[in-house]
Structure formats: structure tokens, C-alpha cells
Amino acid sequence: MSDYNFAYLDEQTKRMIRRAILKGLAVPGYQVPFASREMPMPYGWGTGGVQVSASVLTPEDTMKVIDQGADDTTNAVSIRKFFEKTAGVATSEETSKADVIQTRHRIPEEDLREDQILVYQVPIPEPLRFLEPRETETRKMHALEEYGLMHVKLYEDISKNGAISTSYAYPVKVEGRYVMDPSPIPKFDNPKLEMAAVQLFGAGREQRIYALPPYTKVVSLDFEDYPFEASKADHACDLCGSETSYLDEVIVDDAGGRMFVCSDTDFCRSRRAAGHVGAQGVPYEEDVA
């Protein structure tokens, strides 16, 4: 622990990032540029989220890291270990016990509280990027609230697929002002963006931070005749039987066998611990998990 400053980053860097976070909270949905640092992991592995987490962590905090809802994938495990090593903070896989949750591509199923912070890893913060590659132009479009182009993308979806097929990174309008990319969370999670916890978004390679203060109004863009729908696979979890959680489809053998399981592993485990059993599930035992 003594080999590093607390949480890896030096204090000046953390102050710089905190200023960017505060500005982001003051102007919800606005992308604040910040001087992203080199981190001991490659871009695309959550360097933006890690810098934001490092800047908001205190030694008393408990941290949770998830990758697509799971606590046990490589990305989640490495980042959790990184903070255990450099900040010495407690870690947990239980959503309710965490003070800071860093996430890649999901929002936990369990409602978050006002005393929690959710940190997103963001690959591409600019929602207009795919239609307008010029950064000078997209900044101007945000400044002047020229968001017609965002609907062009949705129009293209419908004209090609008969429905809005954008299923993740679904664009939202924040407090009736800025259009924001909620990071590649499934659109199932979009309604949860209006929550009690503070939400911070960090894009390391792109050097942008943006934020949603608690209870910020977040509206998913849509057409009057093609309203937004938060969709999920039409199944129940095969392990815990939940019919409301977001599911992953898992191929289990070479004969086309498959099962649907909660993408939020902590949510699934706690339901099974409470006695819920899905179609292919077995009763919960402490050691198995």
C-alpha cells in the first residue's frame, strides 16, 4: 500500500478529475474534457471509470466492480484487485454493501441509494459521433441544441428493421437539454438512469467525464409512433426464476442447448439464497457460488 499514493493517482490529478466531475454534475449530460492519465491497463479496459473511481474513493469505502453485471469476469476481477492493491479499500460483490460501484455495460437490478455512487466505463462518449464524425461540429450541435441528427439514426433503424433496433447505448436527453450516450448499457436499463445514486461517466481514451446527479430527468429518444421500449429476452431466469431481470443467453452444449440467466450475478445469487429456484436451477448452497 505504501508503495502507491492512495488509489494510485496523485492528489493533484484527483483534484483535477474531481473538478471535472463537479462541473459534470452542475451541467448534467454535458461532456467535460479532462486530462486523462495513462493507467496501468490498456484503453478500453475501463481507464476512464478507474480514474473517476480513484478520485471519489475514500479509505472507508467499500467497492464493487461489475462487468456486464457480473462480478467474476476478467475485467471486473482485475479492476477490483487494482483497487484492493492501490487503495486498500474493502470490496464486496453485494450491491447493497458497496459505496462505490464501477460498472461496464450494466446498471445493477437492485435499486441504488442516495449514499451510493455508480461509475460507468464509457468507450465513446459522443452520441452524435457515428453520424457526424467532426468533433468541432458535434460540440457546436450540443451547444446549440441541434439534435435532429440523433433522430436520423433512429429513423434509419426503423426504416431498416421496422423498429428501433438500437438495443444498447440508446441515446437519452438529460433534463430536457443535453443528448447523452448512457454508455453501452442495454436499453432495458435506460429507465433506471433516473435513480437516487450519483452516476458518473468516465471515458479515458476520449478524455471526457459526464454525470447525472440524483433524480435527474432522463428521457430516451423516440418517435411518437415508435415509442421507446425497454426490452429484454422474453424468458425467466433459469437459475433464480426472476421474470423482471435482464438476462444473458448461455449456450450450454454443442446440441443447441441453452439457458437464460440473470446478467446481474449478485442479484441472481441473492434471490437463490432467498429460496427462489428457476427452471434449470438447483437449490442454493453457500459453497457452490
Partner: peptide
């Protein structure tokens, strides 16, 4: 859409 049309 730029001038506010929202009906596909």
C-alpha cells in the same frame, strides 16, 4: 427532424 418533426 431538425425542426422538431417526431412522427416517423
Amino acid at each position: 427532424m431538425a425542426v422538431g418533426a417526431r412522427h416517423y
